[in-house]
C-alpha cells in the first residue's frame, strides 16, 4: 500500500491538514495576546517618552496611558500629556526610513514646545546589536533636554569620536547609517509638527 502513488498524495494531504489545523488553532489562542502586545508597544513608547512617568508592567500600560494621555485635534497629531488635569507636554509620533526598515517612535516635548523631555522607539528592524541599540536607555537618555526647533542648530547625532557640541548627542558606534537617518527623521518630524502647531499651545484653561 505504501508504494502506491495515491498513498503519497493522500498521506501528504492528511499531514498538511493535520499540521495546519493545529497551527491555526494555536494562532487563534495566541492572537489576542499578539494584538494586545502590538497596541501596548505604542502606548508604552508614549509613556517612556516622558522619563518622569513610571512605566507599569504590560497589563497596566493601557490603563495608565488612557489616564495620562489624550488625543487632541489641536495638537496636530500628537498626544497631550495631562498631569493633574494640566497640560504638561506633548507626545509627538515619529516615523521614517531607517537603515533597513521603517523606524517608528515617540518624542516627548515640553509644554512650551521648546525642549525634548525624552524619546522612545517602538518599531525598528535595524541590525541587532548595532542600530537596534537605539532602543537602549543609554542612547535615548542623551536626548533629554535638547532644544526643539533651533533653525541654526538642529538636533545632531555625532560619531562617538567627536565630542558633541550644543544640541548634539553621541551616535552608536558601528551604526553610523542608522544614526544618520535617525537624525533626519527626528528633525523632520519635529519641524513638521512645530509648523502644524504654528507656535500655539493647546488651551487647557
Amino acid at each position: 500500500m505504501k508504494d502506491k502513488p495515491w498513498f503519497a498524495v493522500a498521506y501528504m494531504f492528511v499531514i498538511t491538514v493535520f499540521f495546519s489545523t493545529v497551527l491555526i488553532g494555536f494562532a487563534r489562542l495566541t492572537q489576542d495576546r499578539v494584538i494586545a502586545n502590538e497596541q501596548v508597544m505604542f502606548e508604552r513608547a508614549v509613556l517612556e517618552s516622558f522619563p518622569e512617568i513610571d512605566v507599569p508592567p504590560t497589563p497596566q500600560v493601557n490603563q495608565r496611558f488612557s489616564e495620562l494621555f489624550k488625543k487632541s485635534d489641536d495638537a496636530a497629531g500628537a498626544f497631550v500629556y495631562l498631569k493633574d488635569g494640566q497640560i504638561a507636554g506633548y507626545a509627538v509620533p515619529l516615523e521614517g526610513k531607517g537603515f533597513w526598515a521603517p523606524i517608528r517612535g515617540v518624542v516627548g516635548v515640553s509644554k512650551d514646545l521648546t525642549t525634548i523631555l525624552g524619546i522612545s522607539f517602538y518599531d525598528q528592524n535595524e541590525t541587532p546589536g548595532l542600530g537596534a541599540r537605539i532602543t537602549e536607555a543609554d542612547f535615548r537618555e542623551q536626548f533629554e533636554g535638547l532644544t526643539v526647533g533651533k533653525i541654526e542648530r538642529p538636533i545632531g547625532i555625532r560619531p562617538p569620536s567627536v565630542s558633541p557640541a550644543d544640541n548634539e548627542v553621541h551616535a552608536i558606534s558601528g551604526a553610523t547609517q542608522t544614526c544618520v537617518r535617525l537624525e533626519v527623521l527626528i528633525n523632520e518630524a519635529l519641524s513638521a509638527w512645530l509648523e502644524a502647531m504654528n507656535g500655539r499651545e493647546v488651551d487647557d484653561e
Binding site: A8, T16, V22, T30
Partner: peptide, 28 residues
Amino acid sequence: WTPRNIRMMVQTLIIAFYVIIVDLILKA
C-alpha cells in the same frame, strides 16, 4: 508510514510547523 519519494516535503512541513510555533510563542 512516510513514502520515501515525498519524505523531503514531509520533513520540511514538520520543521516549518515547529518553527511557526516557536515564532508565535515568541510573538505572544
